[in-house]
Every structure is written in structure tokens, then in C-alpha cells.
Design a protein around this nucleic acid. Structure first.
Length: 271
DNA sequence: CCGGACGCCTGTCGGC
DNA sequence: TGCCGACAGGCGTCCG
């Protein structure tokens, strides 16, 4: 489900309810996420204050007085702020209960998400350590992408979805940004010019920024912290639009599998 | 190192 | 109506 804009939307929604506040307890109903929630996590969290919340790629990082929490929403996860009295529904796997009686509730039907407490700074964690640059911050531009793509044969779409190259670009926004940049998703990454990568880097920032402004994309599961959906789905230019006319030239949009993932593009505009 | 395939899960949808 | 396969927003791991 969530790519960078959905995680950013979630972060902005939950932050005011959690930052600076004290955790009363962690209630786990289902430990079996992508990695099982470690025994003893409850004891680690009880009574701790949440000092700050951050996003790194598609990960949410909660800095505590001792250690940090590392959360990922996988394909189908969402986080909501609810009164503890709200009965949990199916797949509501855990509640982080705050002193004010409200809780951060994780719902994740497919259980590809994760919830890990780590003693060390989270950027030292193996899942975070090797991540590439943030696309909305400095250090991400055409020169960087061009350099990383040298001698790479992999399709440019798979290349920009590689979190070691750049974080946060998932299957929706990869198709969308390649369309904006006029680059065919199947082009070998090493055969894209630096000026085209400059355009692609700009397109990635444009698309992610637009989606954050719309509160993310809700195709099925995604809801923000208060339960409302994101509205970027109606602004998608190609994703899910197989057989519909290209917004630029009118040619029928195509869908093709690239690296086992559906990819949407205009066979006329994208070369 | 690189590229590609697979598996982890549940839910939904379309075709027959 | 029921069944079955395909597919879904991610990503770590394994194999050649």
C-alpha cells in the first residue's frame, strides 16, 4: 500500500498526537508481522516518552527516551489514532496506548508490516543503514542517478524502485514519474542520459509532492490517521489506466510486467 | 556485484 | 452460486 506520500501523510497525522507524550502500554493482539514482534517489547515501551517522530523512506521512526521504534506499513498497513474504547476490528494487530487514553492502532491485513524496538539509533539498524537518499531532499538529482546507473542493465523502473538507489518510490509513483519524464519503464538504467535523469529526478519530486498535497493515494486500504482516504488516485496519469487514452497524445496506455510488477506507460510518449 | 525469481499473507475481483 | 486463478501500494532472501 503505502509509498512515501502515504507514509508522510500518516506521519503528519499522528505526530501531533504522539510527540512529547508518554506511552502507557503496548497491547499486542498478533505478533506475527513480517518479523515477529519481539517478546519483551511491551516492557520496553511502558512508561516511555516519545521524543520525536521521523520518516526515513517508507519507514516511520519514533525516538524514545530509550531506543527507538521502527515501523513499516508493508503493502496493506495503516495507522490510526483512536480512543482506546473503540473496539479493535479484524487485523488490528496492536495498540500503542498513550497516557491520555487514546491509542495508535496498527491495522495490517497482509502482515507485511513491521514493528521493531531497537536500542541503537535507528539509522544504524540493518534495515535503515543502506537506504539511498530522500528524493525530496538535497543530494538527489540527475547527476546522482546517472552515476548510480552506470553499467546497470536493469530496467529503469526497477532501478528507481530500488531503495538503495532512492527511497520511497514504489510501484505507483515509479510509473507516474517515468510517464512525466517521457522515459520508457523498460529502458536499461545505464542507457538513460544524465539530462533525462535530471528530468526524471524532477518528475519524481513533482509526483511525490503532488500526492503528499492530496493526502496520498487510496486504492483500497490506505487511510490517514483519522480514517479519511487520500485523494491522489483521481490525479493519477497512467497507473491503473490500461487501455485508456494517454493524457498527452491519446494513444492507448499499456500495462506490462517489469520485474514482476505491473507497469503502466504510453508506448508513444515514453521512449 | 548483479539481475531475476520467490515467498511472505489476506482480500477482492473477474471469468467460467 | 461457487470455485479458481490472477492480482494487489513492499521487500528481504536466495540462486545462478
Amino acid at each position: 500500500m503505502p509509498e512515501l506520500p502515504e507514509v508522510e501523510t500518516t506521519l503528519r497525522g499522528i505526530r501531533p498526537h504522539l510527540e512529547g507524550r508518554q506511552i502507557r502500554e503496548l497491547k499486542v493482539r498478533e505478533r506475527r508481522l513480517r518479523y515477529p514482534i519481539a517478546e519483551g517489547t511491551e516492557a520496553r515501551l511502558a512508561g516511555q516518552r516519545i521524543l520525536g517522530l521521523r520518516r526515513r523512506g517508507k519507514y516511520l521512526l519514533l525516538d524514545l527516551e530509550e531506543g527507538s521504534l521502527l515501523l513499516h506499513l508493508g503493502m496493506s498497513g495503516s495507522l490510526r489514532i483512536l480512543p482506546l474504547t473503540t473496539p479493535p476490528g479484524p487485523h488490528d494487530h496492536l495498540d500503542l496506548v498513550m497516557e491520555d487514553g487514546r491509542c495508535l492502532r496498527l491495522r495490517d491485513p497482509r502482515r507485511f508490516g513491521l514493528f521493531i524496538w531497537t536500542a541503537a539509533p535507528p539509522e544504524h539498524h540493518a534495515l535503515i543503514r543502506d537506504l539511498g537518499p530522500e528524493p525530496l531532499e538535497g543530494g538527489f538529482d540527475g547527476a546522482y542517478l546517472h552515476k548510480r546507473a552506470r553499467n546497470r542493465q536493469v530496467a529503469v523502473k526497477a532501478f528507481i524502485m530500488d531503495a538503495k538507489v532512492v527511497v520511497g518510490v514504489g510501484n505507483i509513483y515509479a510509473s507516474e514519474s517515468l510517464f512525466l519524464a517521457g522515459i520508457h519503464p523498460n529502458r536499461p538504467a545505464g542507457q538513460v542520459s544524465e539530462s533525462q535523469y535530471a528530468l526524471l529526478a524532477r518528475s519524481i519530486r513533482t509526483v511525490l509532492g503532488e500526492s503528499i498535497a492530496a493526502g496520498g493515494t487510496s486504492l483500497r486500504d490506505f487511510v490517514a490517521e483519522d480514517g479519511h482516504p487520500g485523494y491522489f488516485a483521481r490525479q493519477l496519469r497512467v497507473y491503473g489506466h490500461e487501455g485508456q487514452p494517454c493524457p498527452h497524445c491519446g494513444t492507448d496506455l499499456r500495462r506490462e510486467k517489469i520485474g514482476q510488477r505491473s507497469s503502466f506507460f504510453c508506448p508513444n510518449c515514453q521512449v
